[in-house]
Nucleic acid binder design. Structure first.
Lengths: 173, 173
DNA sequence: CCCATATAGTTAGGCAGCTAATTAACTGTT
DNA sequence: AACAGTTAATTAGCTGCCTAACTATATGGG
């Protein structure tokens, strides 16, 4: 019996943000803070929902993304290239590949050009798994934003893009 | 010398989405898929940026949120209530409290009303830590969305809200 | 009153992300 | 040719999140 399934996701409110800001005697704009906090909450929640979905196919978000990236690139890539493509460290890729290799979805072989390198290869079984998941995966992604019209999606993308730039600027500080 | 610091965050493109959809012979809308994928990427990136920020104060996103939630509620709450407020499981709260207690930022005492229960209490040191972090924390949140006007932020919030509903519907499937 | 069930908190084990350190191989300079 | 520095991949150890299982206490029905 799963005991925590009824976890509620109470969205943070504008009032909460305003109270916090006032408590510390600051002058930040509560609405701006709310945008940031809600975006983070949505991202986290989306991440968890994905994890559950991929779990049903014996994968995880990270493993799925690695597999998909491999297929996008013709089925072969070095761990370093995978890390760059996925935006994670090479150490993380090592772990993901370990798991996928155990399941026979990818294989490792050593590089011919570079004695230090290895190449991760998508196996037939790995490609098969991707095909099995695709319909539901894309259906879910579509359903998630189904409440928005095409124009609204365009607007959202543009605003998100600008926020992403703001995040990028922060990271470089 | 950190060796992976130059990790690039290549945003997924509309073309990539379209190619993937076509490969599996599906009919999903690439733009809708792109919105979902970018939102997930932004959330993940924001999460990592936060982690770095909080790390400079010897905390993490989860620990900070627990501390802040505690202060919002007058400084005392049970682990169960904390879990509900933060949207995580009680097991996770146990881990967060363990860490915070080790640093002397919170304390545990057993509940007087319920023999099974404990109460997590914000210590003076914990409150002090929050005060130290507040200015930079809120400045960063504000800076992140600084590229948007007030009207745009309102629009973004509204669209994000509708997407959050879409995510909620998926979770219940 | 007792027992079944529910709830509070913890523990154990898993995964994914990180950093830092290690080993091996490549590269460029002198 | 030898050595220094760089890069590829892995390993070890941390955190946060999860689920499942366990212990202890509450609570309600026969």
């Amino acid at each position: 019996m799963p005991q925590d399934a009824d976890r509620e996701f109470a969205q943070p409110t504008l009032d909460q943000a305003a109270v916090q800001i006032r408590r510390y005697g600051l002058t930040a704009d509560p609405q701006a803070v709310l945008v940031a906090v809600r975006l983070m909450a949505a991202g986290a929640r989306l991440g968890q929902a994905s994890e559950v979905h991929f779990g049903r196919f014996g994968l995880s978000t990270g493993r799925y993304r690695l597999l998909a990236d491999l297929e996008d690139c013709g089925g072969e890539k070095s761990p370093s290239q995978l890390a760059a493509g996925l935006g994670v460290t090479r150490a993380t890729v090592t772990g993901l590949v370990d798991g996928l290799e155990r399941e026979g979805l990818v294989a490792r072989r050593s590089s011919r050009e570079d004695g230090r390198g290895t190449v991760v290869v998508l196996t037939a079984r790995g490609a098969q798994r991707l095909r099995e998941m695709a319909p539901e995966h894309f259906r879910r992604l579509e359903a998630m934003v189904g409440g928005l019209s095409e124009v609204e999606r365009g607007t959202f993308l543009e605003l998100l893009e600008r926020i992403a730039q703001g995040i990028g600027a922060l990271v470089e500080e």
